[in-house]
Amino acid sequence: MSKRKRFIVTSIILSLGFVGIQFLPSQYRFVSIGFLGTLTLILFFWSLREGLGLNMTLVTLTLPIIFTLGVGFFWFLLPANALARIPIVVFYGFGIYALCLTTNIYTVSAIRTIALLRAARGVGFILTLLSFFLIFDTILSLKWPIYFYALISVLTSFPLFFHGFWTIELSKSFSIRTGRFSLVASVIMGEIAIALFFWPTSIVVGSLFLTVTAYILLGLGQAELEGRLFSQTVREYLLIGLAVFIGMFFVTRWGG
Score class of each variant (00 low, 15 high):
residue 26 S to L: 10
residue 192 I to R: 08
residue 200 P to K: 07
residue 124 G to D: 02
residue 172 K to Q: 10
residue 36 L to G: 01
residue 108 V to W: 12
residue 66 I to R: 01
residue 64 P to T: 02
residue 72 G to D: 02
residue 91 F to Q: 07
residue 248 M to K: 07
residue 160 L to C: 09
residue 60 T to I: 04
residue 33 I to C: 06
residue 49 R to V: 15
residue 6 R to A: 02
residue 177 R to V: 13
residue 105 I to K: 01
residue 175 S to P: 02
residue 10 T to S: 04
residue 161 F to H: 07
residue 48 L to Q: 09
residue 109 S to L: 08
residue 134 L to S: 03
residue 195 A to L: 15
residue 25 P to W: 06
residue 230 F to I: 11
residue 232 Q to C: 00
residue 213 T to D: 06
residue 116 L to Y: 15
residue 72 G to W: 01
residue 53 G to V: 07
residue 205 V to E: 11
residue 201 T to S: 14
residue 242 L to F: 14
residue 243 A to P: 06
residue 19 V to A: 11
residue 171 S to I: 07
residue 75 W to D: 00
residue 191 E to K: 09
residue 125 F to Y: 10
residue 203 I to N: 05
residue 76 F to V: 11
residue 160 L to M: 13
residue 177 R to G: 09
residue 89 V to F: 05
residue 222 Q to K: 13
residue 133 F to S: 00
residue 145 P to A: 12
residue 74 F to W: 03
residue 134 L to H: 04
residue 240 I to T: 02
residue 108 V to E: 15
residue 154 V to A: 14
residue 16 L to T: 03
residue 104 N to D: 14
residue 189 M to P: 01
residue 233 T to V: 11
residue 245 F to Q: 10
residue 202 S to D: 12
residue 185 A to D: 06
residue 228 R to T: 08
residue 139 I to R: 08
residue 175 S to H: 01
residue 61 L to V: 07
residue 249 F to W: 15
residue 219 G to V: 11
residue 126 I to F: 10
residue 176 I to A: 13
residue 239 L to F: 15
residue 238 L to N: 03
residue 234 V to R: 01
residue 230 F to E: 12
residue 240 I to Q: 00
residue 224 E to A: 12
residue 135 I to F: 01
residue 152 I to A: 08
residue 56 M to W: 13
residue 97 Y to W: 07
residue 135 I to W: 01
residue 31 V to Y: 15
residue 99 L to R: 04
residue 154 V to L: 12
residue 200 P to L: 05
residue 128 T to Y: 10
residue 227 G to D: 11
residue 32 S to G: 14
residue 135 I to K: 00
residue 26 S to H: 07
residue 92 Y to E: 03
residue 20 G to N: 10
residue 26 S to G: 05
residue 224 E to G: 05
residue 45 F to M: 13
residue 181 F to A: 01
residue 208 L to R: 00
residue 151 L to M: 15
residue 123 V to W: 05
residue 62 T to Q: 07
residue 174 F to P: 03
residue 184 V to D: 08
residue 219 G to D: 04
residue 101 L to C: 08
residue 156 T to K: 01
residue 82 A to W: 08
residue 227 G to A: 08
residue 14 L to D: 02
residue 84 A to Y: 14
residue 147 Y to C: 11
residue 145 P to R: 02
residue 185 A to V: 08
residue 161 F to A: 02
residue 233 T to L: 05
residue 223 A to L: 09
residue 158 F to Y: 10
residue 37 G to F: 03
residue 5 K to I: 15
residue 135 I to N: 00
residue 200 P to C: 01
residue 220 L to D: 00
residue 80 A to K: 15
residue 123 V to T: 13
residue 29 R to K: 11
residue 182 S to V: 07
residue 201 T to L: 11
residue 176 I to P: 04
residue 166 W to L: 03
residue 57 T to P: 05
residue 188 I to W: 11
residue 101 L to M: 12
residue 201 T to W: 11
residue 237 Y to R: 13
residue 82 A to Y: 12
residue 173 S to G: 13
residue 86 I to N: 09
residue 26 S to V: 13
